[in-house]
Amino acid sequence: MAKGKRKVPGLNGSSMADISFIMLIFFLVTTSMDTDRGLHVRLPNPPDENIEQDPPKIRKRNSLIVNVNMHGQVMVTQGEKAGIEVQISELRQLAKDFIENREDRMDYPEKHAVELPAPFGVQMITDKHVISLQTDRAVAYDIYFQVSNELYGAYNELRDELARRTFGYGYKECNEDQQLAIRQYYKCMISEAEPRSYGPQQ
């Protein structure tokens, strides 16, 4: 017997591919790529039931009321002006003009000098403006969502433009401190009133 000549038989690994194929197919089927996206919103603090609160007084020129009725029509009332019916697609530009008040118009929100973090320093901003969103209870969620999307979009666009003006790149590329400063420059002031029901409910 020549001991050195004995050969260890190799493990047959040809079925390994099949096994891993089966597992691969299993995971392929069960997987759902993480594509969870959404509109991030911050709700106001809960109302304090013990204290009777008067609603805060807001000067007319500082308020933009967006009203969605039960048919999904959008009406915008700004300051002393009469309400106008607008399309959802027009809402963004309208809100942007209102928030920014670039020409310092008398009928748009008043500007105050506010101390902001660097690099802005003291700036004149419309810190008292309020966008009030009122929705009827019978409106479809989709319409409410589209309206909110446009309003938040107005803030996002203004912030992005400001970032490009000051830093030379978009809001998303800014670091955290810069984003914080920009967010204080254009502070999100969307208030959602309790929806009222005007018409008969289904």
Binding site: H40, Y141, D142, F145, E194
Partner: peptide
């Protein structure tokens, strides 16, 4: 939420979330 849901339910849910101090919400879309 489903697109065609009426706002009534969504608002009630939001009100409850406020009371529960869950203030950071996301509308999945």
């Amino acid at each position: 939420g489903d697109k065609d849901t009426q706002m009534g339910i969504i608002t009630d849910v939001k009100m409850e979330l406020r009371k529960a101090w869950a203030l950071s919400i996301v509308y999945s879309a």
